[in-house]
């Protein structure tokens, strides 16, 4: 699904989290929102997911206006920074949550839900942890469960807020490749937030560099490296 962001603004009271921002994301791409703390990355992601509504501007999904769609109607697979796994549910129930929440007409039967959860557990390479609780998992495992839970709803896009933020360098590297693989197998338009330039350079097809609620530059990693659009980009990327 391609995503069109047209002149989106967001104010929180007197602070402007996003100045008018425009961005066009081709279907199936893997996009990094890169920028320093407070630059509006999370705000933009939450607007796409329907958790926040823009003060002005439009969002288009496949050309259709999606600005007014509720969070449920967006069907965005959202992975939160702290993962936000349901702490009182087993991993299995966490992943099955979205399927069970469907209206009766479109809800799969219990056996089908179990089959899909098992397949997702295989996809994240953690086939045996269905019975555990989130408190019994490592950080990296939690992150992958959160990803599986988001994928379970057959989302139209995947939105990840600093998916590797709380993990050590080695695990980050492994999971990076994991995300790339999952993106390539599902073909989902994927947007992830990071303030790690290496992560963005290595993983993304397209990098959106943000600063103080504005987009400084949009481009492929090689383009940005070759032609940084501003002093800010040059400095932030150590070019």
């Amino acid at each position: 699904m391609n995503i069109e962001i047209e002149e989106i603004c967001k104010d929180f009271g007197t602070t402007a989290a996003l100045q008018p921002v425009s961005l066009s994301i081709p279907a199936g791409s893997l996009v990094a929102l890169l920028g320093p703390s407070g630059s509006g990355k999370t705000t933009l992601l939450r607007i796409l997911g329907g958790l926040e509504f823009p003060s002005a501007g439009r969002v288009l999904f496949d050309g259709a206006d999606a600005t007014g769609l509720t969070v449920q109607e967006r069907r965005a697979g959202f992975v939160f920074q702290s993962y936000a796994l349901f702490r009182h549910m087993s991993v299995f129930d966490n992943i099955a949550y979205g399927l069970r929440a469907r209206p009766r007409k479109t809800r799969p039967a219990a056996a089908e839900i179990a089959r899909r959860v098992t397949r997702l557990l295989d996809l994240i390479k953690l086939p045996d942890i269905g019975g555990r609780y989130p408190s019994q998992l490592s950080g990296g495992q939690r992150q992958r469960v959160a990803l599986a839970r988001a994928l379970a709803i057959e989302p139209r896009m995947l939105l990840l807020d600093e998916p590797f933020g709380a993990l050590d360098a080695k695990v980050r590297k492994e999971l990076r490749q994991g995300l790339r693989d999952i993106h390539d197998t599902t073909g989902l338009t994927t947007i992830f937030v990071t303030h790690d330039q290496d992560e963005a350079m290595e993983l993304a097809d397209l990098i959106v560099v943000m600063s103080m609620g504005r987009i400084e530059q949009i481009g492929r990693p090689a383009e940005i490296r070759a032609r940084p659009a501003s002093d800010f980009v040059r400095q932030f990327l150590d070019l």
């Binding site: 969070v71 449920q72 796994l85 349901f86 949550y97 979205g98 379970a152």
Partner: peptide
């Protein structure tokens, strides 16, 4: 609010979020 928000993005209605996420917590 993170768990509630997660449940909403997974398609759950407000009342379902309350019954299955907020109340058990």
């Amino acid at each position: 609010r993170a768990e509630e928000e997660a449940a909403l993005t997974l398609g759950a209605s407000g009342s379902r979020v309350f019954l299955t996420v907020t109340l058990p917590n």
